[in-house]
C-alpha cells in the first residue's frame, strides 16, 4: 500500500500502465495479428495441422501480451487474487472446450455418425 502511494504520487503507478506500455502492447498485438492472418492467407504450403497449432500459439501469445500491457495484470504480490482467478477461469474454459471436443469426438466414433 505504502509503496503504491509513493509511486502514484509522481503520476506513473505501475498498476495503471504508461503510454509506452500501451504502445508496446499495441505494436506487439498488430504484429501477432498480421502473423495469424499471413499464415492463413499466404499459401505457405504448410499442412492444416501446423497452421491450426500456429494460430493457437499466436492467439495465446497475443492474449498474454494484452493481459500484460492492457489489463496490467502482473505477477506482483498485490495482484495475486486477480492472477489466480484469471488462471482458474482460463483452466475451466479450456476443460470445457477440450472436454467437449473429446467427448463428442468419441460419440462420433461410437455412433459411427461420420
Amino acid at each position: 500500500m505504502v509503496e503504491n502511494h509513493a509511486v502514484s504520487s509522481h503520476g506513473e503507478d505501475h498498476g495503471h500502465g504508461s503510454i509506452v506500455s500501451y504502445i508496446v502492447g499495441f505494436i506487439l498485438s498488430v504484429v501477432l495479428t498480421l502473423a495469424s492472418f499471413c499464415i492463413v492467407l499466404l499459401k505457405t504450403g504448410l499442412s492444416n495441422g501446423v497452421i491450426i497449432i500456429g494460430l493457437g500459439v499466436l492467439a495465446v501469445i497475443q492474449i498474454f501480451v494484452q493481459v500484460t500491457f492492457f489489463l496490467h495484470v502482473s505477477a506482483a504480490p498485490e495482484q495475486r487474487s486477480e492472477v489466480v482467478s484469471f488462471l482458474f477461469s482460463v483452466f475451466v474454459a479450456l476443460v470445457i472446450c477440450f472436454g467437449t471436443l473429446f467427448v463428442m469426438h468419441n460419440v462420433g466414433h461410437l455412433m459411427m455418425s461420420r
Binding site: 477461469s89 482460463v90 474454459a93 470445457i96 472446450c97 467437449t100 471436443l101
Partner: peptide, 12 residues
C-alpha cells in the same frame, strides 16, 4: 472471469 467461462462454453 465468469464471462470468460461463458465464452468458453460458446467456443466449445
Amino acid at each position: 472471469m465468469s464471462d470468460c467461462v461463458i465464452f468458453g462454453c460458446l467456443f466449445a
